[in-house]
C-alpha cells in the first residue's frame, strides 16, 4: 500500500526548508533564537556565555528528565520542586548540623526524596487518586516538611539553637559550581542524567513499559505489565532524580533553604512539552526535553543580555510555551 515517498513540492529547495523545520522542531527554535541574540549582542555567542546557560539550566535538566519519564507513563509530577527541597535541605542539615560526611548526607537526602517519590507512586497506584491531585498535595506537604526541618532558616545558619558542626563540604560545592577543565560540573551532571534517562527509556524493559502504560494503560495491563508497579517505580525514580538535583542546587548556592526552586515544576513541564513529549503520555523523548530546557535557558539568558526587564521576561517565557505547542500542533497536522 505505502509507496515510496515522492517529492511533490514545486521546487526542490522549499520542501527541504520545510522538512528541516518539521523534523527539527524546537532545535530550530534554539538555533533561530541564538542567531537573533547573536546579531543583537556580541556577548551572546561566546563559550563562557554558553557554559553559563548550561550551568543555569542544569537543575531544570535533571528534574525535567524525571518529569519526562513520568509524563511518558501518563502521569505528571507537580511535587518535583518540593522533593528537591526536601532532599537538599535534609542533606544540608545532616552535613552542617549533625556533622555527617558528604557521602552519608547525600545518601540520606537522595534516599528521603526517593522514599517520598515512592510515596507519590503508592498513593496514585494503590489509592487510585489522579496523579495531578496526589502530587499537588505532596507539593504543599513536602515544602512544609522542609520548612519544619530547617525551621524556615537557610542551612547552614548561625541563628539556630543547634550548634553548627561545620559548613557545607567542598565536594558538594564542587558539584554545584565547580568546573572540570572548562565544563561546569552541574552541566555535566545534567547531561549525564539526560543520557541515563535516554538509556532507561529506549533500552530497558522498564522504559518500554513506561511508553506502554502511558500509551494505553489497559493494553499494557492486558499484556502482562504490572501497571501499578511501573507507576510506583517511575515516581520513586523521579524522587531519586530530585534528590540528586537538590544536591546540585545546594552546592551551587552553597546553602539550602526550604523554599528553593519554588515553581520549578512548571519549568520542567514546560521543557517536556516544548521538547515534543505528549502530555497525555505514550510518546516523547528526553532529548526533546533537553532541547526544551536549553531553549528556555537561551531565551532568558539572551533577554538578560539585552537588558530586557524581568517582568517582560516572564511574559515572553509564558508565551514561548504557547507558541511552541501551537507550532507543534501545526507540525503534526502537516506530518499526518
Amino acid at each position: 500500500m505505502a509507496k515510496d515517498k515522492e517529492v511533490t513540492g514545486s521546487t526542490a529547495f522549499l520542501p527541504s526548508v520545510r522538512s528541516i523545520v518539521l523534523k527539527g522542531g524546537s532545535l530550530v527554535g534554539v538555533v533561530a533564537l541564538s542567531i537573533a541574540f547573536a546579531s543583537f549582542t556580541p556577548h551572546f555567542m561566546t563559550l563562557s556565555n554558553w557554559l553559563n546557560i548550561l550551568r543555569q539550566v542544569s537543575v531544570v535538566m535533571i528534574l525535567a528528565s524525571a518529569q519526562t519519564m513520568v509524563i511518558i507513563a501518563g502521569g505528571i509530577d507537580l511535587s518535583v520542586g518540593s522533593l528537591l527541597a526536601l532532599g537538599g535541605c535534609l542533606a544540608a542539615v545532616a552535613m552542617s548540623y549533625w556533622g555527617w560526611s558528604f557521602v552519608l548526607g547525600s545518601l540520606l537526602g537522595i534516599a528521603i526524596a526517593t522514599l517520598a517519590g515512592l510515596g507519590n507512586g503508592v498513593i496514585i497506584a494503590k489509592g487510585k487518586i489522579p496523579d495531578f491531585i496526589a502530587t499537588l498535595g505532596m507539593l504543599g506537604a513536602l515544602r512544609g516538611v522542609s520548612l519544619l526541618i530547617t525551621g524556615g532558616l537557610p542551612v547552614p545558619s548561625h541563628f539556630t539553637a543547634t550548634k553548627l558542626a561545620g559548613y557545607l563540604p567542598q565536594v558538594l560545592v564542587f558539584l554545584g559550581s565547580g568546573d572540570l577543565w572548562v565544563i561546569p560540573v552541574p552541566a555535566a551532571i545534567g547531561v549525564g542524567v539526560v543520557i541515563i534517562t535516554w538509556f532507561i527509556l529506549s533500552r530497558t524493559t522498564f522504559g518500554r513499559s513506561l511508553y506502554a502504560v502511558g500509551g494505553n494503560r489497559e493494553a499494557a495491563r492486558a499484556s502482562g505489565i504490572d501497571v501499578d508497579r511501573v507507576k510506583v517505580i517511575v515516581y520513586g525514580l523521579a524522587g531519586l532524580y530530585c534528590g540528586a538535583g537538590g544536591l546540585v542546587l545546594v552546592g551551587r548556592m552553597n546553602s539550602a533553604n526550604a523554599l528553593m526552586a519554588e515553581g520549578i515544576e512548571l519549568q520542567t513541564i514546560a521543557a517536556v512539552v516544548i521538547g515534543g513529549t505528549n502530555l497525555s503520555g505514550g510518546r516523547g523523548s528526553v532529548f526533546g526535553t533537553l532541547v526544551g530546557a536549553i531553549l528556555m535557558g537561551v531565551l532568558s539568558n539572551g533577554l538578560n543580555l539585552l537588558n530586557v526587564q524581568p517582568f517582560w521576561q516572564r511574559v515572553v517565557n509564558g508565551l514561548l510555551i504557547i507558541i511552541v505547542v501551537l507550532f507543534d500542533q501545526w507540525r503534526r497536522r502537516l506530518g499526518e
Binding site: T204, N216, S223, G282
Partner: peptide, 29 residues
C-alpha cells in the same frame, strides 16, 4: 483492538510487549 494495541508504538514493540523478558537481559533490551 483499541484495548489491546498501543497505537503510538511501532509494530515491533507492540509485538514484543508481552515477551519483554525474553528479549532482554537483566532489564536491558
Amino acid at each position: 483492538r483499541r484495548h489491546g494495541l498501543i497505537y503510538e508504538m511501532p509494530v515491533f514493540s507492540n509485538i514484543t510487549l508481552a515477551v519483554l523478558s525474553d528479549v532482554s537481559r537483566k532489564g536491558i533490551l
